[in-house]
Write a protein that binds this DNA or RNA. Structure first.
Lengths: 182, 182
DNA sequence: ATTATCATGTAAAAGGTTACATGATTTG
DNA sequence: CAAATCATGTAACCTTTTACATGATAAT
């Protein structure tokens, strides 16, 4: 799936692996992320598959840049991936729920303390989506009105993050209360 | 992390890999799952690490069973994992959000159609948590009152699933409307 | 002075999926 | 009569993380 993410970004403009990483970090990281090492190897394999081509741009006092460009084949692969209905099962792994599931075996106080910590984290995260994340999208749209169409979808993914974190905090409050009253 | 999940189950009673898989499927699968092949290899490596021991119980007309038992070391490993505050970052990957992020490039109708399909799936899933999943936990607790303590935590993980799916449906409705009105 | 940024990559290991192999019994 | 269940495991493969390696420049 990472390969399709990279295609998606390269469809806007040619980029280096390093730039792709930066783009992911500020836009898709809360639902899709990757390390640089993985991106570099993915790009290499995509080039072998004929999805992208690369050109080297020499630089001084820095390593040369390798700039990747979508091929027509890459573009059509991206299109099919976007259009075809997918099984859409990225089966979730949730470490906190796993630990909680077995937490009857430890002190209630330890559990409650950890849930309080989690609440701080997710309250902050909810705040991030509501303010900072929102503002970043707005800024880009103000600067590039041609991306208006994109904005609707970016906003939808941001909104998912907001609702998710709000739900998470609500659940933590419920769970803390159930434990404290029980 | 899978290894800790297996320790968690084995802490209740010795089990085979096959039984561990069955237990996961009916209890943790919505937040932690694994294939049989992965479970078998994990158990093997856990035995080498001294976290479990295994004994073979011969059977007729079926392959012999290999029953795994927690060692004191395994038990103490489980305890530390449960008690120690963890970084708790199972970084999420969410295929639908990834595709949506790049969906300005395809027909709006295609996107909306896919979101409608997703709504059906997640409405059903929400229903599952509210009725079936709930009933299963209740049944177990009715049969084994000694698991009352456990029940609180099982219920908490079930409730997360319920809230998550409700939030998901809400978000899908919002998103569909935004696309249709735009 | 140290840390962050820019920029590339390789190698080893861990985590996870898919496919292969076997074979009796039970259920639909 | 076909499919599911019980029950084990191995091998190949793919995905992802961690660690290694390099080196200049800019910021704190």
């Amino acid at each position: 799936m990472l390969k399709y993410a990279l295609l998606g970004f390269l469809n806007y403009r040619p980029m280096t692996g390093y730039e792709l990483k930066q783009n992911m970090d500020v836009s898709t990281s809360h639902f899709w992320h990757a390390k640089l090492s993985q991106i570099y190897t993915a790009l290499k394999s995509m080039e072998q598959d004929g999805w992208v081509t690369s050109k080297i741009k020499p630089q001084e006092n820095k390593p040369d840049k390798r700039i990747y460009t979508l091929t027509p084949e890459g573009k059509s692969n991206l299109q099919s991936w976007l259009v075809e209905p997918q099984p859409e099962q990225t089966q979730q792994k949730h470490a906190l729920l796993l630990r909680l599931f077995f937490s009857a075996q430890i002190d209630k106080e330890d559990v409650v303390r950890q849930l309080h910590l989690q609440r701080n984290i997710h309250e902050q995260q909810a705040g991030f989506y509501k303010t900072k994340s929102r503002a970043v999208i707005q800024e880009i749209l103000d600067q590039s009105p041609s991306l208006e169409k994109e904005g609707v979808f970016w906003e939808a993914t941001r909104r998912f993050g907001e609702l998710y974190e709000e739900m998470y905090v609500k659940w933590l409050n419920e769970t803390i209360q159930n434990l404290e009253s029980g």
